[in-house]
Design a protein around this nucleic acid. Structure first.
Lengths: 378, 378
DNA sequence: TTGAAAGCGGTACCAA
DNA sequence: TTGGTACCGCTTTCAA
């Protein structure tokens, strides 16, 4: 039986009256502003505490009411991931009551293609904050550092540039994603077997981390499973197909395949074509409509969903909290990927279909009547 | 390259200027107050929509000096679940800018023990909104209905009372939780075997739903597994122990046990005591420190984490949005439980330790410096 | 170093 | 039926 927050409405003018001074002076004292004698300051702080002064948030926010310009730089490519990410940002913005926001969404074609240019062009924009996905950190570090130096906090989402001075990063824990895939294989393939990883590009940190996590967990907890040489697809469908077929034609056919990027469709089609899907255990990454039938029919054991919506929402909330309250966010937020199986697929699939409705009702704090779906995931 | 946003916040005086009338009239129109001609009213509403008018919550709350009193009725018991749930509520409250809040946390010993009494005693409290966990709907429906009728919206969290007239409910998708447990058994126990469910109280909707989901998935996708009679513990450790031992002593010993409430510790200890843990596959519910070693060592296959923090945050946000903006929330929000395995345990365990810091800095919208942990789950 | 006063965007009351 | 205006508590600017 705990009671929180007492009703005593003590304001700055109560303090002022109490001390026979003006509210201006009280304000200066409470906010450590210059132009006040130390002893006055001390007296004010003391009586503020004694009277249990509680600032009126409504009044403050009304008076300040600054407009925050937030830039959002994300690629057009891989819409199944970045569209919900953008939607998460919009949703979080919509939920901000009483904050004056301007969201500036900018899109470039592809990660590593147009992103740096856009960022550099935007240096003069003077955003109050920026949310973006950095590609190669080596290239992005200097410009992010410059932005930060000129007072624009940057939040990295989906990937990170740890040495760039960015305010924070939000993403999925890549090593753990790989570890989960390995554990699922270990539990399901109960006799000695071979497993393989099909990845995008090992120079991409996220892809390499996933492989590392996979290999590490396999080594420590599944001695009966051996890892074949990893195949790189460079995120190109034809390469994915070629590598998959090569995998099947080799003498050592894997009993399990982990596709650690969103680019799994070509792999699945190649497997199906060779009739290998029924006796190959597959774990994929991310979730998009084409994947649903594979999961429903059990041809895919699981997919590791990277929760783009949640990532976008979290990135935005962290940024706003920093800008509004001055609270520095966790430098690194790593979400746990959702393990999507056949049994819990419906909850994610619903969201997939019913989502991405622009809801461009205009701007920020809109009461937007949501579509009438009955479940939420996050 | 998309630009999203508002040309600046539109206020009542913008509408007034636009129509050449006074702000008083605009106010009357927007709030359906008496003393305004229907046509003026219509014109105002129309241009309000056209200009995308958005009420400024801070200004309103300042003028009205309205303080929203939110009651939160939750059990003391199962702190591993309800403490983070409370924390999620506090976190969401903290993030509200410009809203004058009072959170009234009330605690009763146990679900089904003191909860109804507390609620009935609180009928006179006149909360602006109430967040609570209903036990047996049959008992709670009337009083929730009464609260709703007297103008106090109620949000059910963690479990639901669907026929009570509550504004909304937020919980984990119970049927899917059960389904996941069944699928994990089906994938891991590859030969014919018996499985059992240990539950709390089948009159609690959440518990019953989980059992149903488990049985349904088992029946449709795991014909080789048979379900034994379900055991109820009424969330009492000694009952849990007794039922577990009974399960082991019977002729039909289960190869898999699904504990569908947070009350798994007594079950695990009983299993361990009888040396049954090594050859019994266990899936539990929720996550708390004592469970960690079981997961780390692989003695538990998985636990289904119900994300209490996220539930609390969502419940509070839905309630506030309703109270401030009049937006009715989704009647039912069902979160996907996290499947916590050995490989992804660290990400959840971190959060578990670093959390639950009261941060009772006083009252409502305080800037509280968070502890410096490096990962987040939600 | 301090005080006085003008708003921030609504609401509510009084006058017209 | 309308218009005008004094607040709500705080921040900020300008004067003293």
């Amino acid at each position: 039986m705990k009671k929180e927050n007492n009703p005593g409405p003590v304001g700055i003018k109560d303090i002022a009256r109490h001390l026979g001074i003006s509210i201006g002076t009280v304000d200066r004292a409470l906010h450590a502003r210059p132009g006040i004698s130390p002893q006055t300051r001390a007296r004010v702080l003391q009586t503020a505490k004694k009277l249990n002064y509680q600032p009126n948030v409504a009044a403050r926010s009304l008076k300040l009411n600054r407009r925050l310009r937030i830039g959002v730089h994300l690629p057009h490519q891989i819409t199944s991931f970045f569209d919900p990410l953008r939607e998460g940002i919009r949703e979080a913005a919509r939920a901000m009551a009483g904050v004056n926001l301007e969201l500036d969404f900018r899109t470039y074609p592809h990660i590593g293609q147009g992103d740096l240019e856009l960022l550099e062009a935007g240096l003069g924009q003077h955003y109050d904050g920026l949310i973006m996905t950095p590609g190669d950190p080596a290239k992005f570090d200097p410009v992010i550092r410059k932005l930060t130096a000129q007072g624009t906090p940057v939040i990295c989402v989906a990937s990170d540039a740890p040495r760039s001075g960015r305010l924070a990063s939000v993403s999925v824990d890549a090593a753990i994603s790989g570890g989960i895939a390995a554990e699922l294989f270990a539990r399901t393939l109960q006799r000695p077997a071979l497993v393989a990883v099909i990845t995008g590009d090992l120079s991409t940190q996220d892809h390499a981390e996933k492989l590392k996590g996979f290999a590490a967990t396999l080594a420590t907890t599944a001695p009966h499973l051996s890892l074949l040489a990893t195949r790189e697809t460079h995120e190109r469908p034809q390469d994915a197909r070629r590598e998959t077929l090569a995998l099947l034609q080799s003498r050592n056919r894997p009993a399990g395949i982990y596709v650690n990027t969103a680019n799994s469709l070509s792999v699945l089609r190649a497997l199906e074509e060779r009739g290998a899907l029924s006796h190959t255990l597959v774990v994929t990454t991310d979730l998009f409509p084409e994947l649903i039938p594979f999961l429903e029919s059990g041809r895919i054991l699981a997919t590791l969903y990277q929760r783009p919506f949640t990532q976008g929402k979290a990135a935005f909330e962290a940024l706003i909290r920093y800008l509004l309250d001055g609270v520095a966010p966790e430098p690194v937020t790593r979400f746990a990927p959702h393990i999507v199986l056949r049994s819990n697929l419906p909850i994610f699939a619903d969201r997939l279909i019913g989502s991405v409705e622009p809801t461009e009702a205009g701007a920020q704090n809109l009461r937007s009547d949501q579509p009438a779906s009955a479940s939420t995931v996050l």
